[in-house]
């Protein structure tokens, strides 16, 4: 997500006096987010800590995180995009009808009050979770929220940040962006990177049966993906690198046990705000690290003739 208006969690901790969580449940999914980065910390600019901050939760149901918030806005499921668009209109004093607001499950009064508070803030931040970016509208919802954050800067400082989930998924985004220019959903089959989620994203590729060999590392799609995707993984030669024998390993042709990253393998991991952190493994594993195994596979492949110079037909066929 290049071009987003964002900051680091250190800035949030020290400066954010208005915090919105949208479509996420940090109390249960990111348990130390409140205490370590957002709500509870005291700082030079917010000496009274929690008392100096206003916290709003927007979600489709009242989760445990609602208890920690000052205001809870219950949006009707699937209406996040509408709500964000209405907020974007309201901050610019454009006219919005009661009916349009009612569709989102909220009232104009509540939204006007919210906007007043947003504009009165010195430093606002909006965290958004999968409840926003994985439901109806998907990345368009995330884009609407990022635009709202950017537009709020006409009035006061405002930033947005995705609440990234498991492990080092932020690192994967960063590394792919650095190496290919795109964060995910990439095809290198023409010898240069192309980006097209929906076409090159894994679920779609697997459901369509568009791959004839899958290399899976640090993930267990055999436990999480829809059944047609898993069926295809079982059909083609699948190679799995994982510290455990996973669901995916059981349907794979090759499983290689590796040392768990951060526990027995050293390296770097990215925090959700894209700050890299060194890992400090406590144990010595009897297994090699992911890094070592992938490098050895790559070196073995590199010994063979290059496929691109071998079969340039795709390029010629295009001309």
């Amino acid at each position: 997500m290049g071009g987003k208006v964002t900051c680091t969690l250190g800035e949030v901790k020290n400066r954010a006096d208005f915090i919105v969580y949208w479509g996420g449940n940090p109390a249960e999914c990111h348990p130390r987010h409140f205490t370590k980065y957002t709500l509870m910390q005291k700082s030079k600019f917010l000496p009274r800590g929690r008392k100096d901050r206003t916290v709003v939760l927007v979600d489709i149901r009242e989760t445990k995180s609602a208890k920690a918030a000052d205001h809870f806005l219950q949006v009707r499921p699937g209406k996040d995009f509408e709500l964000l668009t209405i907020l974007r209109a309201l901050i610019k004093d454009q006219k919005v009808s009661e009916e349009q607001v009612a569709e989102t499950g909220l009232s104009l009064e509540v939204l006007k009050d919210l906007i007043e508070k947003m504009k009165a803030a010195k430093f606002g931040v909006m965290f958004f979770g999968m409840g926003l970016s994985m439901t109806r509208g998907k990345h368009m919802n995330a884009a609407a929220l990022l635009t709202l954050a950017a537009e709020m800067n006409a009035f006061t400082k405002f930033v947005a940040m995705p609440m990234r989930g498991h492990g080092n998924v932020t690192g994967a985004d960063v590394i792919m962006r650095w190496q290919t220019g795109y964060p995910f959903g990439i095809s290198l089959n023409r010898g240069y990177p192309r980006y097209n989620p929906g076409e090159f994203s894994t679920v779609d590729v697997l459901v369509r049966g568009d791959t004839d060999c899958a290399f899976i590392i640090g993930a267990d799609p055999g436990a999480t993906m829809p059944k047609p995707a898993i069926d295809h993984l079982a059909k083609v030669p699948t190679i799995v690198l994982d510290p455990h024998v996973t669901h995916t390993s059981r349907l794979s042709r090759v499983h290689i046990t590796t040392a768990p990253a951060g526990i027995a393998a050293p390296g770097t991991g990215y925090r959700m705000d894209e700050v890299p952190m060194p890992l400090k493994p406590a144990l010595q594993s009897p297994y090699p690290s992911d890094e070592e195994v992938v490098r050895r596979i790559r070196e073995t492949i590199a010994l063979r003739p290059d496929w691109m110079t071998n079969q340039p037909q795709m390029i010629e066929a295009q001309i």
């Binding site: 080092n168 994967a172 590394i175 290919t180 995910f184 290198l188 023409r190 640090g218 890094e291 992938v294």
Partner: peptide, 25 residues
């Protein structure tokens, strides 16, 4: 590439490049 290090992720990208593969997280 979620539960692994950036160093391993970098190797994965290099391998995908060599293979002309699909690459996704």
């Amino acid at each position: 590439m979620s539960n692994t290090t950036c160093e391993a992720q970098k190797e994965c990208v290099a391998m995908a490049d060599l293979l002309g593969a699909l690459l996704d997280s």
